[in-house]
Computed example of a mutant assay.
Amino acid sequence: MRHIATLVLALAYVEHVINDAVPPLPPDRKTPPMAVAIKQARAAGLFPDDLLDGAAVLSVFRNPFMHRRDQDDPDTLARRVNSRRTHPTTIGEHDAMDALILMYDFFRWSFRAPPSPP
Rank of each mutant, 00 (worst) to 15 (best):
H67M: 05
D95V: 05
A10G: 03
R112C: 03
A21L: 01
R69G: 01
T6P: 00
R80A: 13
G92W: 07
L11G: 03
M97S: 13
L46M: 11
K39E: 13
D70M: 08
P74S: 13
Y104W: 13
E93D: 14
A96K: 06
Q40I: 13
P27W: 00
H67T: 04
A44E: 15
P117D: 12
M103D: 00
K30F: 06
R62D: 04
R84W: 08
V8G: 00
R80V: 15
L7G: 06
T86I: 10
P88Y: 11
D98F: 04
D95P: 01
V36L: 02
P115E: 01
M1D: 07
Y13E: 08
M97E: 11
N63M: 03
F61Q: 05
D49K: 07
L102W: 01
P115S: 03
V60C: 03
S59H: 14
S59F: 12
T76M: 10
L58P: 08
P24L: 12
L100Y: 00
L77V: 04
L25N: 07
D98L: 10
A44F: 05
M66V: 15
G92L: 12
V8E: 06
G92P: 11
R112P: 00
T31D: 05
A44D: 14
L51M: 02
F107I: 03
R69I: 02
L100G: 01
A56K: 04
L58E: 06
V8T: 09
V81N: 01
L58V: 09
A55D: 06
D75V: 02
P27R: 10
T86A: 14
V81I: 14
F65L: 12
Y13D: 10
F111G: 04
P26E: 06
P74R: 12
N19G: 04
G54P: 08
R62L: 06
T90D: 12
P32R: 10
A12R: 02
A10C: 12
N19C: 13
R85L: 14
P118A: 13
P24R: 11
R29L: 15
R69K: 15
I4T: 08
M97R: 10
H94F: 08
A55N: 05
V17T: 09
A99D: 05
M34A: 09
A56R: 07
R112W: 04
L102N: 02
F61I: 04
A5V: 10
P117C: 06
Q40L: 15
F111E: 04
A55F: 10
M103E: 10
M34W: 01
V36W: 00
A10D: 09
